[in-house]
Amino acid sequence: MWTFIHKLGSPKWCYSLCGRLQPGFWIAALLLIAVGSVWSLAYSPPDYQMGNSYRIIYVHVPSAILAQSVFVSMAIASAVFLIWKIKIADMAATVMAPFGAAMTFLGLFSGSLWGVPTWGTWWTWDARLTAMLIQLFLYIGVIALRGAYGRNDQGAKAVAVLTLVGVVNIPIIKYSVVWWNTLHQPATFTLTSRPAMPESMWMPLLIMVLGFYCFFTALTLYRLRNEIIRRESRTRWVQALAE
């Protein structure tokens, strides 16, 4: 176990490991998303209340789940970086951030499009939407802080601290927004009160979520390799890659 972690800390070893792992994840992501898309768009039955507009759920839920998972992954990577000083962990956190921000934005975008036919409005200060919006700003803060420091060790540590502070705050923000929401407006529509989905509806959703996870893993591995090249470009083994 320990030797494995120490080996992971070596950029060269990690580079080749990522190279070996990533094709599988790309293929899995492609297959899962393709199957999930066709199934969910064409084969799953329409919802008895929302008709076909509910098909947005198949992109909305995966991006919303990823938006949270990516932040947690970033926080884990940051903690590993701060505790064991493994630079690979910081590189991983670096490459994850833009994808997480994009997923958060997509969750908001598809949620707002879905809101028009179901709630009758583009935006409502619903607890989940508001919490997502705040999370988007947390992502932007992390990216902006890294941008301000540039790619150096000091910036990496500062971003790691901010990410950890953010991840501690996410549940607090979430529950306070829920509390605020119940205080201000009675719930008009809640998705959770609907009857449980039939299997023909949730199976494609599960496939899409898994597909998005595989895509995230594949993209992170791929961009981690890029980041290793960028930061280790002075070493001989990286320069040998250009031959």
């Binding site: 947390l138 803060g141 953010g166 927004v177």
Partner: peptide, 8 residues
Amino acid sequence: LLILPLYI
């Protein structure tokens, strides 16, 4: 930018 989301 960093602090306002945490103030909510």
